[in-house]
Amino acid sequence: MTSRRLRIRLPLLALICFSLLPLCGCGREISKSVSTFDYLDTIIRITVSAGSESEADSALSGCLDIIRDYHFMLDADGEGFVGRLNKSETVSLSAEEKALLLSALGMCAETDGALDISLYPLARLWDIGGGNHVPDEDEIRETLLRCGYEKLPPVTDEYALPAGMAIDLGAVAKGYIADKLSDYLNKAKVKSALIDLGGNIYALHEKTGGAPYRIAVQSPSDPSGRIAVVEGGDVSVVTSGTYQRYFDKDGRRYHHIFDRRTGAPAQSGLLSVTIIAPSSYLADCLSTAVFVMGEEKGAEYISVQSGVSAVFALEDGSAALYTGGEGGGYTVIMEGGK
């Protein structure tokens, strides 16, 4: 070929080759999921993407094992450390149990009691979803004497609760477990995963193909509708809402998120609070706490939580988004024109 022709043909060839490159990016990825009703009193669904079917299967069964173990450990009426403490036993805490208890109590203090793990006596009194009892003033007052995280003794290796008190880690359990699952899946080198523990969502990495996970925030008033979508990876979305567990009586709704100041379901003007954060444990803690705080105090609290965002669903049907500074690796897209 003449050098002139070469000068034209070579770049053209390069262009064609360059445009074909994207096709080489396809690696093998197998996606599998598992669902179960057996644990945590709710439906659990885990989906993983791994390099082979056996890797996916082993990751999933590893997840189920972890969930089963924590379900046992954290059951407030079971035989794990929480259940035994609630039966007034003295329990030898493992390192992890001690750390968890300390951390949870720390969150109670930080949220000034908006999150309080010691309200189990109150929960038993109201028995939402069971006896559905609306207690009177005396019952509440008496029960509140046996509640209050500040009344719990400092955490020691051999631990026991004061008489009549009881704790419940239900408000933080799902988030805690989700974080443990994501640690496990990271070590198991799965390519991507979606963890759904009864609506407590954690998205590990991005979806196959590099697209971000899309997690909808359910609308409190319409179960098939959504008020926001979170797009991102390595992020958790956790909601606390009045619609999750409640009973109606005499025209009033009594839900399961208690306010320790009143001894009754929190009346904060909110229908739900959804926290978006890289840590599912943090999101779970904050979703309860911020709900009790209400919009004003809650927004203020969120504004100093770096990398955390919150979607508030208000009683008037509107929704608001608050963010605590940069970071997070996710985008929150509100539905509608706001």
Binding site: N200, A203, R214
Partner: peptide, 9 residues
Amino acid sequence: SSEVDAYAK
């Protein structure tokens, strides 16, 4: 195609 992967509830 704008389906979501999960619902947080």
